[in-house]
Amino acid sequence: MNSQSQARQIQRVWQQGLARRQFLKWGLGSVATVAAVAAGGFALLRRSPRDAVSRPGWAADLSDDEFHLFDRAREVLLPVAGTALVDSAAIPVVQNIQRTLNYLDPVTRKELGAGLGLLDNIAVFTHGCRFVDLELPEARQMLDRWGEGGVLQRTLATVLKQLVYSAYWQDPQTWQPVEFDGPVSDKWGLSYLGNAPLPGPLEVSAQETTV
């Protein structure tokens, strides 16, 4: 299925009755309602072997589905075979994502969760299983197509990628293979200059210069 027809199908299924403007926003609250209804109807199809696995204790601020989505996205987005890059399994990617999400205000956090849930579940329509159960090449192709798709697809693909990418590359363990220097001031022994001296007496007089 090409990206255009996929976009049309998604729009048909998910946007019925919803104002387009709502999809132009991060505000995806209405999607949560639709997703919940659809999830009920497609409960069988959306089952995943991962559902039987609970999230680890440290992931208390994520739902089980969110944990599985981010962990699968880590595998999809960060392949290192054939490179000198550090295996993402050695980096606390999902922990870092959780920390980022904890900075969001509650409303945005809820809407983002709904949107990412949509990304996970929508693959049921196109691939017969959730995103977390797609083979790696299929998952990557889906995200590539979504980057070319409608606003909603572009938004969700971009959000997922940015969360995963920044969560991986913020870890200092990933820097050495690409020769990124990281913090340098202390390493270089740069001196602290302190506060600048008070300015001298020269100044512009408002009375003299104002027309």
Binding site: V76, V80, Y165, W169, Q170, V178
Partner: peptide
């Protein structure tokens, strides 16, 4: 390095990691 991840879309998976490498 983190800013770099936000700049370009060379493709999902291997193309992106090759870009970063």
């Amino acid at each position: 390095i983190v800013e770099m991840t936000m700049l370009a879309e060379p493709g999902t998976g291997e193309p992106f990691m090759e870009y970063m490498a």
